[in-house]
């Protein structure tokens, strides 16, 4: 989450907000934030830490682990209309890739704004596809796998 904080300005520039959530109480969040996170991120985290008592919200998002009583590492990208656009859920010992999270915000926003589709590995400036009946069966003429990298 400090990695997300390091890239927060980039997310903000995209019109995105970040919400972090765990089963901890807001008071625990406060102690951790003031005692440790503020030493890693000057001024503390630039976004709110939400509390999910008993994992009620985590259950709705399919990330609550009843055996351990915690919310596992799920990440949900929600568009300006409140519609779910991307999901990633990782095993507890595996950290996230913040650069990929940001790329997905850019890709989802591009799709929303243009109606085009972003092929594998798309980044701003790379070719996007205009879905149409004419394109069916002809993607291979305008896109190839090396364009994904």
């Amino acid at each position: 989450m400090t990695a997300v904080a390091a890239k927060y300005e980039e997310l903000k520039a995209l019109g995105a907000v970040v919400l972090a959530m765990s089963v901890d109480s807001p008071y625990t969040h406060k102690v951790w934030s003031e005692g440790e996170l503020s030493k890693i991120v000057p001024g503390g985290l630039p976004y709110p830490m939400l509390s999910d008592p008993g994992g009620r919200i985590g259950q709705e998002y399919m990330v609550y682990d009843e055996d351990n009583g915690v919310d596992i590492r799920g990440r949900f990208l929600i568009d300006p209309d409140g519609i779910l656009q991307a999901i990633e859920i990782l095993a507890p010992a595996v950290g996230r890739n913040v650069a990929e999270m940001i790329r997905q915000v850019k890709a989802c926003a591009y799709v929303r704004d243009t109606g085009e589709a972003t092929p594998a590995g798309w980044e701003p400036g790379k070719k996007a596809l205009k879905p149409s009946p004419e394109l069916a069966g002809k993607v291979c003429e305008i896109w190839s796998p090396e364009m994904a990298f």
Binding site: M1, V4, L11, L14, L19, D71, I78, P92
Partner: peptide, 19 residues
């Protein structure tokens, strides 16, 4: 409250762990 913005909501296993 966040309608009109992109929201990155993420869950993590607990405070005082690496996240």
């Amino acid at each position: 409250d966040y309608r009109g913005k992109w929201v990155m909501l993420y869950f993590y296993p607990g405070d005082f762990t690496f996240v």
